[in-house]
């Protein structure tokens, strides 16, 4: 315990750190300007997108470089249904999630058996097809390269209208919070373990009874659904969606979030999202060097810390009470 790094390992200290972080998140917007709050909002969007990709890439180890496609489906579903049919944005959040999830299910079913780089190439193609389809304005509903504009604020029957930066901030971080809660529960269940078994060794997972295909598809469907919700919030915040927001570059950024933070690690995703969203704002004067820094960071990460900044700590198991008793009797 005299180890000077021991505070890292003490559960009390890390709990205190989490509480402090949450408090700062609650208090910070009341003292910050709109610019800072909006930056924090986009941090939240990237955190949510990072968490959604983390299921596919981090938990199951599937190389998905077309994740912006699911994000786009969610955003456009909300944009079109809201502007054309006037459906309320908040009610469209689950609809967007389901649309993206259904799309993921249909598109991924035939390709789910592909491994590693093969899957990667196909998902790149999928993301690009979504973007090009949006540009080509199918059935005259996506507005072509200009996109769809005039998307409403989220509101609850006129009582609570989310129209200021601070409200959007709480909306996105609320959703991030709920998502983290759900993902932590999944991580500590049969489902999360099955995902990790597949990532570690697909053949062994199959041989021990994990339905590899089913769990891979499940990861894609859940990941796409969460990305769809992110699209819903993004669309209402910007009030406009256009194909250029969902480019291949966006998928790459999401990939970086998961790789920088640590595959399968929820705190890691938050760090990665902070890096991707806050860093360019802080260093805006040096914007021309942004790509240089990004590239260098990725290279250095892969060389010196391939497991990410904050890799997931595996759960520890203490002896079961019933068994200890049994042993005592024996």
């Amino acid at each position: 315990m005299t180890d000077r790094f021991s505070f890292n390992k003490s559960p009390g200290a890390s709990k205190a750190a989490v509480v402090a972080a949450i408090l700062i998140f609650f208090i910070f917007p009341f003292f910050a300007g709109d610019y800072a709050i909006d930056t924090a909002f986009f941090f939240g969007i990237y955190a949510l997108l990072g968490l959604s990709l983390n299921i596919v890439l981090g938990e199951v180890g599937l190389f998905d470089l077309g994740h912006a496609g699911f994000y786009a489906i969610g955003a456009y579903t909300t944009a079109i249904l809201n502007t054309v049919y006037g459906l309320p944005v908040l009610a469209l959040a689950p609809v967007s999630a389901m649309a993206a999830a259904l799309f993921a299910y249909l598109v991924c079913s035939p390709i789910i058996h592909l491994r590693g780089d093969y899957l990667c190439i196909v998902t790149i193609g999928m993301g690009e097809i979504v973007r090009l389809a949006l540009i080509n304005n199918p059935f005259n509903i996506t507005g072509g390269p200009n996109g769809v504009f005039g998307i409403d604020f989220p509101s609850l029957g006129g009582f609570l209208v989310i129209d200021s930066s601070i409200e959007y901030y709480f909306l996105i971080w609320g959703v991030v919070g709920v998502t983290i809660w759900g993902l932590v529960r999944l991580q500590n269940s049969k489902i999360g373990r099955a995902w990790n078994y597949i990532r570690e060794d697909e053949a062994a997972a199959g041989a021990i009874g994990v339905d590899v295909r089913k769990y891979k598809l499940l990861a894609f469907v859940i990941g796409a659904g969460i990305a769809g919700v992110a699209g819903n919030i993004y669309a209402s915040k910007l009030m406009v969606v256009s194909p250029e927001s969902f480019s291949f570059w966006e998928s790459c950024l999401l990939f970086c979030i998961v790789l920088i933070g640590g595959m399968g690690s929820i705190p890691g995703v938050l760090i990665g999202a902070a890096f991707i969203s806050l860093f360019p704002e802080i260093f805006r004067p040096f914007a021309m060097y942004r790509m240089l820094v990004f590239g260098s960071v990725m290279i250095l990460m892969m060389m010196f810390r391939p497991q990410g900044f904050w890799p997931r700590k595996r759960g520890r198991f203490s002896p079961g009470k019933a068994l200890l008793k049994q042993e005592g009797e024996a």
Binding site: N196, D201, R314
Partner: peptide, 13 residues
Amino acid sequence: LFKNMTCMENVMA
């Protein structure tokens, strides 16, 4: 084995 998982998690599989 599932190399980056604990032995307990491996057996739980």
